[in-house]
Amino acid sequence: MVMNNRTFQQNSTSSAPSSLHLQDLKLSLRGEQLFTQLSLSVRPGEIVTLMGPSGCGKSSLLAAISGTLEKDFSLEGQVLLDEFNLTNLPPEERHIGMLFQEDLLFPHMSVNENLGFGIPAHVKGKKERTALISQALNDAGLSEFGSRDPATLSGGQRARIAVLRTLLSQPRALLLDEPFSKLDAELRARFRDFVFRHAQANNLPTLLVTHDPDDAQSTGGKIIQMSDF
């Protein structure tokens, strides 16, 4: 697999980069406490890693930040982008990009349609939207795949398209829920690099959840153990 080192960069005019702040988060599931007093700041372009065994509430924390927490959880504390409080906003108004273990490309849409689905509605005009899509694919070295069925691509290609889709939606922060754990070792290192490069180039505060020390090391950033909360 050829992966060049070019990077797709959203020339976003919509907002200046902001930091992600978690203040005194306390999460419990049906009365049982998962963590408490979790406070943390992530600067634009910074990648912070959260580590911990399964079941410690890592994924639930990401769900809490993105606003997709299931109903039987209860959350206290605040999630902020700079000064802007997100805590009571529905997920679609938070603009926090999520990447999961699976690429979750929409199976009924082509690659182009998947990417187009991510572009905000305020980007008007078919021309401009298609231009954005081809630029993203170009910069990621995937330009020939636009009209393809996602199911016909390799795992690595799909994973990169999922990243582009998220970036095209112009998120203000990025959450990574073990997005590398399903890939084999070699692909994993390169894809990791791809994701981190894009997160930094787009100035996104990024939170990575993993149980793999390798992933954590490779960010070169702060590593936080969930068991500390």
């Binding site: 769900a63 993105s66 606003g67 997709t68 529905p90 997920p91 679609e92 108004e93 938070r94 603009h95 926090i96 990009g97 999520m98 999961f100 699976e102 979750l104 929409f106 689905f117 991510g118 905000p120 889709r165 998220t166 939606s169 112009q170 998120p171």
Partner: peptide, 23 residues
Amino acid sequence: QDDRYIKVALSMGVSPTRAFWRI
């Protein structure tokens, strides 16, 4: 159905109604 498809759509700023009809 895997609800994460819907969550992904919401996190991209798409409304629940649109996610329901389109996804």
